[in-house]
Design a protein around this nucleic acid. Sequence first.
DNA 1: ATTATCATGTAACCAGTTACATGATTAT
DNA 2: ATAATCATGTAACTGGTTACATGATAAT
Lengths: 177, 177
Amino acid sequence: MALEHALLVALREQPASGLDLARRFGRSIGFFWSATHQQIYKVLGRMESDGWVEATEVSQSGKPDKKVYDVTPAGRAALAAWLAEPTPTHALRSDLAVKMRGASFGDREAVLDVVRANLADHHVRLDHYRQLMKRDYPDGSGALAGLDLDQYLVLRGGILTEETWVAWLTEYLEAHA
Amino acid sequence: MALEHALLVALREQPASGLDLARRFGRSIGFFWSATHQQIYKVLGRMESDGWVEATEVSQSGKPDKKVYDVTPAGRAALAAWLAEPTPTHALRSDLAVKMRGASFGDREAVLDVVRANLADHHVRLDHYRQLMKRDYPDGSGALAGLDLDQYLVLRGGILTEETWVAWLTEYLEAHA
DNA sequence: ATTATCATGTAACCAGTTACATGATTAT
DNA sequence: ATAATCATGTAACTGGTTACATGATAAT
């Protein structure tokens, strides 16, 4: 499991409430890791029991109170230990790849439509990432270091990944044109 | 859920027993979809109850009997229906990406070692896929069509994916050199 | 009052993993 | 007999999803 650790990274970057985290996971961080607010609340609760994070009630003007979580020293230690662990390489698990491979067992034109829809979606994501890149790193990786550099490089990974999807699905569609 | 459908595709390509499937999922198909034999048996049982597949006892010389599964007309219909469904685009969910982003909250050199280990693994996979490509499609996509073409294109996707991992991790390591 | 949004959760379920169990067959 | 391999499973658990619940605050 790694949602715990993804949350620790997010909270070290910036303390936040459960809903804040859910929103962030729907944006920058979440392009590489997704989580619903339900799952986040559940895991935050466990992490609080384990002493990895602690919550502070914060009153807001015009909105209900929220519980802002921050990482404790124990949480920092847990994160540091996890970061140093080896991570097994996971197989890419893609419904779409299964459909592409099995297209001859159904209506091929329907599968091509599914692929076209996914291609359009990956184009949108790629454009979005490129805009983020332009907005947040107009000078490239130039003078970046530490967390800034790491955030830049992970965004680079997102762009490379989306470019690959676009290239692959385009190749598939052209081969079946 | 899609293991059901991945199994249907695999069984339409070639009827097989649970263990046969587990072995295939550890090889060609499994580079894009993984499953253990336990999970496969469980799902095959459910699929048999649902009338999607049927088993035939096959006696082997020198080995225990096995149950070879084949897809029923109902299973074919279920597969065709699933193939035509849209598939949501899933966020890439990668422990390694989280570690790369969070490296400044731990021992950076340790994280770089983790990245190096993963890079080596992706090199191995890439070499393996390229050998498969050379062995099974020495003439490129030339005269391929139908299932053959789809299998080729999915292997192409595996190669593109691994090339992307290699490029990304290399870029990360160089940026931190 | 009603609706919309913000915020935090609970409950039931589902897919997949890990650990363990069982029996057949073959080789030593 | 013993060990190795082939083959099929069960049980307990974990992580994640989906559906639903509850209350605060603001705008109309």
